[in-house]
Each structure stands twice: as structure tokens, then as C-alpha cells.
């Protein structure tokens, strides 16, 4: 008999299970991310060689007007984009989820399937679809509003500096409302029927039952939906790129972090692309997302236990 204490044989099987997957994950995801963070501290000279530059890239981005103006503009726009999602997408998602979960609702599955459908399609497709629908050339929306007697309010929203960003946000809300709806719906289903029955017997009306019983119980899910929305919004790119192009017009009014990152890295028209400045923008995006996730973990995750059934 061999002594087990003499050291187990090398666990080849663990290496077998972890090896291939982790090799790809570390080399294509973890390493590039870390390398990007590293690159953000370097300067690239015209011959392509890299030199350590300390925080110069960040000071440029945050304080040098040429860079900081677009940067703060994109940050602000991205915040607006996010808040519109929080204020419109998630409440609508919540409302739909609550309605879908009403007891004995017929066709609930059909509604669910159909409302979720746009979420499945590519943002690119959705972008084009709405561009067509809102186009004054085609006039579908205009006609529609004319029928409602609202024709005076129609405008080429996507083309105006004042309304383009909000319009884009609404298009995105329209597409992704299915996600909060589905997740909140699942959370509502997991609340035992007996709890609702108990609240009815206790004399709570439907509003009270919702605000005192159901809402607190789905709060963790709402927190999760919020952080998912946050990450997705600060990582968004396709919709703006599809509808407004990399320049995020008019006059950068729809520029968000994703498009800024793209332009900084690749360059566009007059602007020359920069590897290290791109890395710096990505690093700042990373910090913003990290901050969001940290806040979420701090405020929500800690309390989730409270609500466990």
C-alpha cells in the first residue's frame, strides 16, 4: 500500500477540466483587460513605440479641453441614457410583470412571448427599424400622430440635437423592456400564493398587498435589474452607431462612452485613433462600471438576506 501522506499524485484531471477553458478565458478576457489597464498608463509615439506616461492620459481626458469636453459630454449623455432606462424601462417592466402575474390570467404566455420578442433581435436591426419608422420621409409616425390629433408635435426627433439622445434611449427601452419584465415576473411567481392569500385575509387591498408584501420581496430582483441595466447602458454602442454613426451626431449630442471609446481607439474621419488613449477611455469605463457594481453590492446584496423566503 502506498502511503497517502507521501503526497497525492498530481491532479491531472483537474488540469484537464480547467485547462482549455481557462486558457481561453485568461488569454482573451482577463489578460486583455489587465493589459488595457496597463496600456492606459503609456504613451504611443508616432513610430509605434510605447513609453510610460504615468497619469498623463487621464489628466488629458479629464482636464484638457480637447479631450475632456467630449469625455464629459459622453459621460453625461450616458447618465441621461441610463436614467431614462431606470425611469421608463424598469417601471414599465415592473407594471407588465405585475399584470402578467395576475392570477388566472388567460393568454399570459402569449403576451409574455410577444412582448419579449424585440429583445431577441439585434440592436442593429431595431435601430434601422425605428430609423425608418421615425423618418419624416416615410411618414408613418407623422401619420399616426396626425390620426391622434398630435401632428403639431411631430418632429424629426432623431435629427435634432435636443431630442436625439432621448429618442435613442426610448428606442432602447422599447427593445429591452422584456428583460426587467421577465426577471421581475419570475420573482413574482416565486412568491408563494399563501402569502397573497394571507394578506387578503388580513384585509389588505391590492395596492397595500403590492406595496407592503410583494414589492419588498422583489426588491432584490429590482436591484439586480438595475445593475444589469447600468452595465448594459455604460457598455452600449450599437444603437448609436447604427442610427447616428460613429460621430454620434448631431453635434455629438448622442455620444456615449461606447462610441467615444470606438472613436478614440480607431479614429474617425479627422481624428486619429490612439491605442493608449483608447485604453484610457476603456479604463475609465471600467472604473465607472466597477463603481456601479460596488454600490450595488453594498446597498443591495448585503440586504438580500433579509428578504429570503
Amino acid at each position: 500500500m502506498t502511503k497517502t501522506s507521501a503526497g497525492k499524485p498530481f491532479p491531472w484531471h483537474i488540469l484537464f477540466f480547467l485547462g482549455p477553458g481557462l486558457l481561453i478565458y485568461f488569454s482573451v478576457s482577463v489578460y486583455p483587460l489587465l493589459d488595457t489597464l496597463r496600456l492606459s498608463f503609456f504613451h504611443e509615439s508616432s513610430d509605434g513605440s510605447l513609453a510610460f506616461a504615468g497619469l498623463a492620459n487621464f489628466t488629458k481626458l479629464l482636464f484638457d479641453v480637447v479631450w475632456s469636453e467630449p469625455f464629459w459630454n459622453a459621460t453625461w449623455n450616458n447618465l441621461v441614457f441610463f436614467f431614462i432606462h431606470m425611469l421608463v424601462q424598469n417601471p414599465i417592466g415592473l407594471l407588465l410583470a405585475v399584470l402578467l402575474s395576475s392570477p388566472k390570467l388567460r393568454l399570459s404566455g402569449t403576451y409574455r412571448t410577444l412582448i419579449f420578442m424585440p429583445t431577441m433581435l439585434s440592436v442593429v436591426i431595431i435601430g434601422f427599424v425605428w430609423q425608418l419608422l421615425l423618418s419624416p420621409l416615410w411618414g408613418i409616425t407623422e401619420n399616426f400622430m396626425w390620426n391622434l390629433g398630435l401632428e403639431d408635435y411631430f418632429d424629426a426627433w432623431l435629427g435634432k440635437e435636443s431630442s436625439a439622445l432621448v429618442t435613442l434611449a426610448f428606442i432602447s427601452v422599447w427593445q429591452f423592456v422584456g428583460i426587467p419584465m421577465m426577471l421581475i415576473y419570475a420573482a413574482l411567481l416565486s412568491i408563494p400564493d399563501e402569502l397573497s392569500d394571507a394578506s387578503v385575509v388580513d384585509g389588505a387591498n391590492p395596492w397595500q398587498a403590492f406595496f407592503y408584501i410583494k414589492l419588498p420581496l422583489i426588491l432584490p430582483t429590482i436591484g439586480m435589474v438595475s445593475i444589469l441595466t447600468f452595465v448594459a447602458n455604460f457598455n452600449a454602442f450599437e444603437l448609436v452607431y447604427t442610427i447616428k454613426g460613429a460621430l454620434a451626431g448631431p453635434n455629438y449630442s448622442t455620444d456615449i462612452m461606447g462610441t467615444l471609446f470606438y472613436r478614440t481607439f480607431f479614429g474617425f474621419q479627422l481624428q486619429e485613433g490612439s491605442l493608449t488613449m483608447g485604453a484610457a477611455v476603456a479604463t475609465l469605463m471600467f472604473l465607472v462600471i466597477l463603481l456601479g457594481v460596488a454600490l450595488y453590492l453594498f446597498f443591495f446584496q448585503r440586504r438580500i438576506k433579509r428578504f429570503q423566503l
Binding site: 482573451v28 478576457s29 489578460y31 486583455p32 483587460l33 493589459d35 488595457t36 496600456l39 445593475i227 452595465v231 457598455n235 454602442f237 461606447g258 471609446f261 481607439f265 491605442l275 483608447g278 485604453a279 476603456a282 479604463t283 469605463m285 471600467f286 462600471i289 466597477l290 457594481v293
Partner: peptide
């Protein structure tokens, strides 16, 4: 949570 896109440069 952290989008792989952020590492695009590298």
C-alpha cells in the same frame, strides 16, 4: 459583470 469589450484594445 465586467464586459469583455473593455479589453478590446488589447
Amino acid at each position: 459583470m465586467i464586459p469583455i469589450r473593455l479589453g478590446t484594445v488589447s
